[in-house]
């Protein structure tokens, strides 16, 4: 067993884990943060995306021990003081989800796209950047709209999300 310490959603956690424990297992099983989902085990589907030190990471192929000392944000940590993150609001407003299974990873990836690419995202950029997240329900049409609106709403000074 190996001791690992990290900050998850703002709280410091320390645990003894089997060295082969994946970050997805660590947050789901040790911390019972089950919003992070595992959909494929091969880094393809993106349902497991979390942020490690501010960058999107596929937690199903990341060892928990490699995140020792890191700061991790999961979908449960995105809303602050009960106020939904603009990207969460945008997914609801634009019907960017159906079964909800890919949604946490989609939202975490979308926030990361905005962090890297800015608040004015065109459809082509969004579709290319979502390459690492698979959704089987929505056909992506409304996810693309949600990401575009969420990106705008994340801009400094933006206050609300206008529906189409």
């Amino acid at each position: 067993m190996t001791t690992v310490t990290m900050t998850v959603n703002g709280k410091s956690v320390t645990a003894n884990v089997d060295p082969r424990t994946l970050l997805s297992q660590f947050v789901r099983e040790n911390l019972r943060l089950t919003g992070t989902h595992v959909g494929c085990d091969t880094s393809q589907c993106g349902a497991c995306v979390v942020h490690v030190d501010g960058r999107a990471v596929k937690s199903c192929t990341t060892l928990a021990v490699s995140c020792d000392g890191s700061s991790v944000t999961t979908i449960e940590g995105l809303a602050v003081d009960g106020a939904l993150h603009p990207m969460q609001e945008a997914f609801r407003e634009h019907h960017g989800l159906q079964c909800g299974f890919c949604t946490p990873g989609m939202i975490m990836s979308a926030v990361d796209i905005v962090n890297r690419k800015g608040n004015a995202l065109d459809e082509h950029t969004i579709r290319e950047e979502l390459e690492g997240n698979i959704c089987r329900c929505t056909g992506y049409h409304n996810i693309v709209k949600a990401v575009e609106a969420g990106a705008r709403a994340m801009a400094p000074g933006a206050t609300s999300i206008a529906a189409e």
Binding site: T34, G35, L84, R92, H95, L97, F101, T103, P104
Partner: peptide, 21 residues
């Protein structure tokens, strides 16, 4: 109507079978 079920899914509080212990 915007979906009543969405809040739990966008906040990571959906409860799928594998989430149950």
């Amino acid at each position: 109507v915007r979906r009543k079920e969405d809040f739990r899914f966008i906040t990571g509080q959906g409860r799928y079978t594998d989430d149950i212990e």
